[in-house]
Amino acid sequence: MKKTFTVLGVVAAAMLATSASAGTLEDVKKRGTLSCGVSTGLPGFSIQDEKGNWTGLDVDTCRAVAAAVLADANKVRFVPLTAKERFTALQSGEIDILSRNTTWTHTRDTSLGLNFAGVNYYDGQGFLVQKALGVKSALELDGASVCIQAGTTTELNLADYFREHGMKYSAVVFDTSDQTREGFEAARCDILTSDQSQLYAIRSKLGNPGSAMVLPEVISKEPLGPVVRQGDDAWFNIVKWTLNALINADEMGVTSANAKDMSMGTNPGIKRLLGTEGDAGAKLGLSADWAMNAVIQVGNYGEMFDRNVGPKTPLAISRGLNALWNKGGILYAPPVR
């Protein structure tokens, strides 16, 4: 009897241990698809249309990784996650990358067993208010009720901001972005707070978008980026360098349209990036055309930005902080060399 239990115990213990094993790269190649955690629906970043297609900046980041690893940007399985679920999904191995407008913070980087592979959007927290309230600045918000999403950095920043300015608030906490918006529309709260980019997305979903406005204050730094599990450095490098490749391509003027031609050109930096010179791909355990596939199938960072959140989209966000370092922004990727 005891033996049975011993065996049972060992089996169960072994079961718990296995998911930490084999490298993510091998798993993804064997499976043939990349598992990517995204939001439940946030225009511009990750949202599903009626036909079930996912679009957005975070979605494209995953597609680029799939293109680099599997040579096919469509081999991605998207897993919608609420803010609360996202880290557990990554820790448990349900997804290979978390690309869900997730802020890089000290606690998340150090205590969750996760690594941030870079930043694909520099954001900051802001406030959406009903115009009818006549509020012009966040400093007039003393005593306000605030609709907010559970499990976000937003929750903590809000508390800090109100404390710093000696103001009181009451937080009405919802699970998803849609519920939060509905609470705001039903006048359950005076303001809605979230990352600024998301405020425009949420506003565009309101019954009457003109009735609400975004306040000028930005109260926090929200560097958003893809996250992977800690302890798999090879996979960490792949995600990090795919993102760097997209940004470098933007800087070098390599686009989905001209990548083929440029790889035959004379610029050694571009040739190294696109795999016609050197062995950048092999050093990542990928094929030589890893970055080429990503850029051709998904586009460089600038193309991704313009397609999903840029001035010509409903979100109409300008590059701002997210412009390249030599164009007035802070986007700066280490060189491929």
Binding site: A83, K84, F87, T107, R108, S111, L112, A150, G151, T152, E155, L156, V173, D175
Partner: peptide
């Protein structure tokens, strides 16, 4: 909501 939600998420 409070403990298994927000607290879990903030502390992991």
């Amino acid at each position: 909501g409070v403990f298994m939600g927000t607290t879990l998420n903030q502390t992991g």
